[in-house]
């Protein structure tokens, strides 16, 4: 919905605006409170529209991060009625009663709805990059069935809502011991990639701390890209860690037969 439609709803031929009560967190990490705003709503309005309306009409200094308004840039993450959501993808009309908008809880607050997600980029740098075999020059010929399951992981828009909801980061603040679900998705992408030759299992177990995850699936619940984070990334990686570190039979097999080289697609 455009700003013009919000300002003069009748012109757009839409139904007359009714107002909704928004309670928005205003403040910084030291001090803040929930501030009440009455915002005229229109059909199809999303929470981000309401934040823009507040900026335009009431408090010009309300801090909100956003870019695309199309659920693709991952900037507008916040907590709407206690649930981590993209503000641009959360329709106002699905919410009954007051609408509470708060910043993500897992990250340090800068101002109002804007948090500092820097930590995630630092974690990302710790993950060894994609490592193709040195002796197989690109372009590679890769079959559909070998990359099919990776497409899902590529959908990630780095909104960090999964990081925000993960109780290990959010509640226990164990950021030193667990990379968080978003980076399990990235590790899964790299580890399952047919052209990645690096052995990542040790990193996944130790530095990434996959054992910290207790598969309670909140990350999957909030992911706006509907990535099956737990079922398709975390659990398969946990099983790979078991193969390597917990399974006595496989360990014995490796001792007897030696480690088998994983097969790779050839180059074109």
């Amino acid at each position: 919905m455009t700003q013009a439609a919000l300002e003069s709803p009748a012109e757009g031929g839409e139904t007359a605006a009714t107002s909704r009560r928004f309670l928005v967190y205003r403040g910084d990490s030291n001090d803040g409170q929930m501030v009440e705003y009455s915002v005229p709503t229109l059909e199809g309005m999303v929470v981000l529209d309401a934040m823009h309306w507040i900026q335009a009409h009431v408090d010009g200094d309300l801090a909100v991060r956003w870019n695309c308004k199309a659920a693709k840039c991952g900037s507008c993450s916040a907590e709407v009625n206690g649930t981590p959501r993209l503000m641009c993808k959360t329709r106002v009309d699905v919410i009954v009663g007051d609408i509470w908008v708060q910043p993500m809880k897992a990250f340090p607050l800068i101002k109002d709805l804007v948090t500092d997600v820097q930590w995630n980029y630092e974690v990302n740098r710790e993950i060894p990059p994609f490592t193709p075999p040195a002796d197989v020059p690109s372009p590679w010929r890769v079959q559909q069935q070998d990359v099919e399951r990776l497409f899902e992981f590529r959908k990630c828009i780095e909104c960090f809502l999964c990081q925000d909801v993960c109780h290990i980061l959010r509640d226990k603040n164990e950021k030193a011991r667990y990379y968080g679900p978003r980076f399990m998705v990235r590790q899964a992408y790299l580890d399952m990639h047919p052209m990645d030759v690096r052995d990542r299992t040790g990193q996944i177990k130790d530095e990434s701390g996959i054992g910290m995850c207790n598969i309670t699936k909140c990350c999957t619940d909030v992911c706006p890209e509907h990535i099956h984070i737990t079922d398709n990334a975390i659990i398969p990686l946990k099983e790979r860690v078991v193969d390597e570190y917990f399974d006595p039979l496989l360990w014995a097999a490796r001792r007897i037969r030696g480690r088998r080289q994983k097969k790779r697609p050839s180059s074109r």
Binding site: L23, G27, S29, Q33, M34, G82, T83, I95, G97, P103
Partner: peptide, 16 residues
């Protein structure tokens, strides 16, 4: 203003 600050962060506020 409503007296809800950070960090209580609406833990009890129900997800709709």
């Amino acid at each position: 203003t409503v007296e809800v600050g950070r960090p209580p962060a609406l833990r009890s506020q129900l997800n709709l």
